[in-house]
């Protein structure tokens, strides 16, 4: 690893000052689970590194009236252990549980997962269906973006060189919807998603979907919503035929690529199957 200068501020303002001063030259370290590996491999060789881990203002998890707010430094393990998130958003908990192993989950952060902008990032699809917003801050001020506007493409976000992600917030899903996170990897743990899916659906008393949100990862340059499938499901009960039709429709809404982990065709065709697998699990839980 090449030598570099490390800054470890404790105040957010100080961090933003440093970012402004070293505009574009700085790498940001949250959990380090990705950055440190790349630095060791020599893939990135930053002159300066901004260590956020001492900034308590970025490390919070709270519920205000109807909104849940997550600080970017919240780790995956903290998500898993949060009674609030287990109660309100089990799908985010499910997603974080599939990330890496214990060590990775202890270090890796929600903010890091977002800013890394991997199309396969497992925490991202749940935040899409939760209609999360990202708060970005710089010396120039703050702005709030819907999560889908945060990503440009693989590895690319809209963060300006002097900007930090300082918060992620979303409304508590009310009333409690049907929800799941599903993923297919090369094995059960410590595997990057070939494809993943987050699902949120509210049903009426007859079990018909009133509102549905579906987001998929690893099947497009960024996480994508399956909007046509969402529309299709509204007003319908999740019968076998409906799920089959919805699965088929999802396959037409994704634009996967082939890589070493999977082919384009497999990703496309099994992306719909995640809907079937996830809903089957939900029904199993309901019935017993």
């Amino acid at each position: 690893m090449k030598d570099f200068q490390l800054f470890s501020p404790t105040e957010l303002e100080e961090a933003l000052d440093l970012l402004t001063r070293h505009c574009g030259q700085m790498r940001i370290l949250a959990g380090g689970t990705d950055l440190l590996i790349r630095m060791r491999d020599g893939q990135v060789q930053p002159e300066t590194v901004l260590d956020l881990t001492r900034i308590s203002a970025l490390h919070f998890l709270r519920q205000d009236s109807n909104a849940i707010e997550i600080g970017p430094l919240i780790t995956h393990t903290e998500v898993l252990c949060s009674p609030l998130l287990n109660q309100e958003t089990p799908l985010l908990v499910q997603a974080c549980r599939t990330i890496g192993g214990w060590q990775i989950r202890n270090r890796g952060t929600i903010g890091g997962n977002l800013c890394n902008a991997s199309p396969a990032g497992d925490a991202v699809p749940p935040l899409y269906v939760l209609a999360a917003e990202c708060t970005l801050a710089s010396r120039r001020g703050r702005r709030v973006l819907p999560i889908q506007a945060f990503f440009h493409g693989p590895g690319q976000t809209v963060l300006a060189p002097d900007e930090l992600l300082v918060g992620i917030q979303f409304p508590s899903p009310q009333p409690t919807p049907l929800q799941f996170f599903e993923k297919i990897g090369q094995r059960k743990a410590l595997a990057i998603s070939k494809v993943n899916m987050a699902f949120l659906g509210w049903t009426d008393q007859e079990g018909r979907f009133q509102k549905v949100r579906i987001a998929l990862g690893a099947v497009a340059p960024t996480v994508v919503r399956a909007v046509r499938t969402e529309d299709y499901l509204v007003g319908k009960r999740p019968t076998a035929d409906v799920i089959q039709a919805a699965s088929d429709m999802i396959e037409t809404e994704v634009q996967p690529i082939g890589d070493i982990r999977s082919t384009e065709q497999y990703r496309r065709e099994v992306s719909g199957e995640l809907l079937r697998l996830g809903l089957a699990k939900c029904q199993k839980e309901e019935h017993g």
């Binding site: 059960k188 743990a189 070493i260």
Partner: peptide
């Protein structure tokens, strides 16, 4: 079920690492 070292058409190993060459864990 899982292990396989893959090569490009020029004979370059594509997955000589634990990220993409998966040995099984106890969960599997």
């Amino acid at each position: 079920l899982s292990e396989e070292l893959l090569f490009s058409s020029r004979g370059v190993a594509l997955n000589p690492n634990f990220l993409d060459y998966k040995i099984l864990t106890s969960l599997d």
